[in-house]
Structures are given as structure tokens and as C-alpha cells.
Nucleic acid binder design. Structure first.
Lengths: 152, 152
DNA sequence: AGACTTCGGTCGAGATCATCCAGCATTTCA
DNA sequence: TGAAATGCTGGATGATCTCGACCGAAGTCT
């Protein structure tokens, strides 16, 4: 499904999505039209979901991040999910197995904001919040290697 | 610190990091050298942490994701943190307040892999794992608006 | 006030890059 | 075996980026 060249291209683009076709081409040993075509197909197939930019939340004034576990009250699941989606400060949300239904990441500018946002769901769900003190690993893709690399 | 033009540029780039300088320029109403200079400074200041590509984990064979809460045994904190960093399948890890010290995202290709990886830290930490069933919100940046938009 | 400096911007020319197209090698399959 | 499909290359052409020169507004110093 993905060959070595595709993987090399992805690896380079993960590090710098603005690498020119020419550079990509010379790094993987192809011509630029070939690279262009490969990227087009990777996007088309959905392997590449998006070219994007990673912004430092601090630069936008978000000095605090929290992981919030959210357990909607009976019958409130959909309302809560919709609410979460609408609150732009939620930067990520997963629906998981187990007692807490959602695990979400919240960006806030102050403890006050945190309180304000959690208040908005307080009557529809139980929440439990953990403030992020450090980020040992920031978002990174899973290993690009062949399906066998689990025992690194 | 960031003016409206910077914010517009970031907004465009979040959607497509490969937008050409010329397009950026015409969309925000500047010349391309100006845009180029602004991007350079945004990178230099660390506002832009990276231009990157978002890859569908499924395309790499990772059919399963889990959120793992990890509570190192007494004295094992640093060993555990190092271990997590070294295991490439951890796609994200935050150190948080509260009882569980780390909250991490794990990409795996199968339940077997999940078990294998958790085994590697089982003797150094208590873990509790929640399988991700759906992703209501995939990674997105916090609102780019001015510091006041918290009460959306 | 007037002169100087800095900062961020424009413009235009030359260099660089992306894209289009024709053509070629390889593979697949009836 | 031959036809079709695939994926590559190289070169021409048009688009884009970069660099230097210059400009004007705003702040600073005498």
C-alpha cells in the first residue's frame, strides 16, 4: 500500500511540510513530476490528511492545558458531545471505553477560563481535570516503518 | 505580539501549510516578500513550531489507539518517562497533576501489540488503559482570535 | 522642530521551481 | 505476443520566490 519512497517522502514532510518538490525529489532520488504525482495520490487516498502548521499555544496566550475526563450524565451523551465540539478551546477529544466516556484536551488562558468552561458542562456531566505540567512527548506520528516494528 | 495579518496567515496555513507565498500574499493583501518575512519571523519567534503533515494512522496499519494513564511506582518516575519516550508508538504524552502522573496516547496495530507494549512498563508503573472508540475532535489549534474570545 | 534611525512595506529583475507533455521501460493479461 | 496500463524521465514554459533598492511612517535625540 505504501512503498519505501512514499514513506521517505512522508518522513521528510513531517519534519517540514513546505519542502519543495525539487528538494523532495533529490532527497528520494526521483524527478519532481514523480514526487508531485505521489503526493497527489497520497492526499487522494487520504494517507495525507492535511498539510498543516503547528502553532505554539503560548504564542496565542494559552498558558495552560488540561486533560479533562468527561462522563455525561444518563441521557446526556449527545448533548455533551455536541457541547464539547462547539467549545473551540477543546483541542482534541476522544471517545473511549471505560467509565469516563470522553477524554479531552483543553487550552485555556487562565485558571479562571478553565473554571468557566467546565461550568458550562458541569450540569450535564461529571468531569475530572488534570492540569498539564509538562509535555514529555508532543504530538508525533506513529512509526512510519513497515508493519513489524513494534518491538523497537 | 501577533497582529491580525499574522493571525490570518496562520489560519490559512493551518488549513494548508503548502499554500504559496503568492496566494498567502493576495489573500491577506500584502506582497509576497512581506509574507515571506512575516513567516520567517513567526518561525524565528517560535510561534510556528513546525510545518508538518498529518498522516492517517490507519494508512500505516495502526488500527487502534488508546489513552493510557500511567502511575510510576515509587522511585521509578524517570525510568518510566524515559521508557515512554523511547517507545515510538506513544504518539503523545503529558505529565499531569493528580494521581496518575502521565497521560499518553498509544498507536498500535493490534490488541496484541497493545499488550506487548504495556508489558514493557508493567513492572515499573501501574497503568490503566482506555481504547479509543471514536474521535469527536481531532487535533486542532486553540482559537486564533484575540485574547478575549473565551466566552464564545 | 529637524535630522536620524528603525521598521515594515513595495517594486522589479533575475534565479529558482512547478507543471505540462512527449516519450520510454516494465508489467500485466487476454 | 501484443495491447494497455503504470510510473518514470527530461526539457520547455510559465509561475513563483528571492534579493536588492527604495520608500514612508513613527519614534528618538539634540
Amino acid at each position: 500500500m505504501l512503498d519505501d519512497l512514499d514513506r521517505s517522502l512522508l518522513e521528510i514532510l513531517v519534519r517540514d511540510a513546505r519542502t519543495s518538490l525539487k528538494d523532495l525529489a533529490s532527497q528520494v532520488g526521483l524527478s519532481s513530476p514523480s514526487v508531485s504525482e505521489r503526493l497527489r495520490r497520497l492526499e487522494e487516498r487520504g494517507v495525507i490528511r492535511a498539510f498543516t502548521v503547528e502553532i505554539d499555544p503560548l504564542a496565542l496566550g494559552y498558558t495552560l492545558q488540561a486533560i479533562v475526563r468527561i462522563k455525561p450524565l444518563p441521557g446526556k451523551l449527545h448533548v455533551v458531545q455536541k457541547l464539547i465540539e462547539e467549545i473551540a478551546e477543546f483541542g482534541e477529544c476522544d471517545k473511549v471505553t471505560g467509565d469516563d466516556c470522553f477524554v479531552a484536551r483543553l487550552f485555556v488562558r487562565s485558571i479562571g477560563d478553565l473554571d468557566g468552561i467546565l461550568d458550562r458542562i458541569a450540569d450535564k456531566a461529571e468531569t475530572s481535570t488534570a492540569i498539564i505540567k509538562a509535555q514529555p512527548i508532543r504530538r508525533r506520528p506513529p512509526p512510519l516503518g513497515l508493519p513489524s516494528a513494534s518491538l523497537s
